[in-house]
């Protein structure tokens, strides 16, 4: 769930960032509302809205795994849009002008010049986002998607070994988040562009 959410969110977040930067006024206002909604309201409410409200309004059924995936993607995209936009705009303004003057179209210069570099610069911010997503999956508990935390809860109530169960669970989160962050850190150091850094 974390991986898919973050990766789909990355795709959507990138599109949003491009839309916001180059897409004109109306689009950027819409995007602003979208981002404000997903960043400003609690994740649990977002889950409930997609679990209860939206299916009811549209008269369809969405199963809880899909709800989780949709919410995590949309939520993560809202955050990642900010990072990617920051990376694209703070560093690459001149390069965009240069690319355009070399005869590339706007889309080509975004695709071939700006994005590849932005993706490298954005890794540290991205790894924080990953950590917070990995943590937030615990909230899936409220719409009964089985994941680590809900399993912990079940184990704790079967075995009555509450302290041990939750400590062990905390350890699992700690280890796997640390490992992934370390890997991202290593990748970042391999591909980073000297002298260009943004602060997360």
């Amino acid at each position: 769930m974390t991986f898919f959410g973050v990766i789909l969110g990355l795709g959507l977040g990138t599109l949003l960032a491009i839309g916001d930067l180059y897409g004109g006024r109306v689009l950027s206002i819409i995007i602003k509302f979208y981002v404000e909604f997903f960043r400003g309201s609690p994740l649990i409410i977002q889950l409930f809205i997609f679990y209860y409200s939206i299916p009811n309004l549209l008269g369809i059924l969405i199963d809880n795994h899909t709800v989780g995936l949709i919410v995590f993607t949309l939520n993560s995209a809202a955050y990642q849009k900010g990072y990617i936009k920051g990376a694209m705009e703070s560093v690459f303004e001149d390069q965009m002008t240069a690319a355009l003057s070399l005869g590339l179209s706007k889309a080509q210069s975004i695709r071939h010049v700006v994005l590849p570099q932005a993706m490298r610069v954005v890794i540290p911010a991205w790894s924080n986002e990953f950590a917070s997503m990995a943590k937030s999956t615990a909230a899936l508990l409220v719409i009964a998607v089985p994941e680590l935390t809900s399993n912990l809860k079940a184990i704790a109530s079967w075995t009555w070994r509450v302290l041990e169960t939750y400590s062990f669970g905390a350890l699992i989160y700690l280890i796997w988040i640390s490992v992934v962050m370390k890997i991202l850190d290593i990748i970042y150091n391999k591909v980073k562009i000297p002298e260009i850094e943004i602060t997360a």
């Binding site: 935390t149 912990l152 509450v162 302290l163 939750y166 989160y173 700690l174 640390s178």
Partner: peptide, 23 residues
């Protein structure tokens, strides 16, 4: 910092409420 920032708030709450509170 590492522990508190990686462990989900929900897990911390459950741990304190049912775990520590159970003693």
């Amino acid at each position: 910092e590492k522990v508190l920032r990686s462990v989900p708030e929900i897990v911390t709450m459950l741990f304190l409420y049912f775990g520590v509170g159970g003693i």
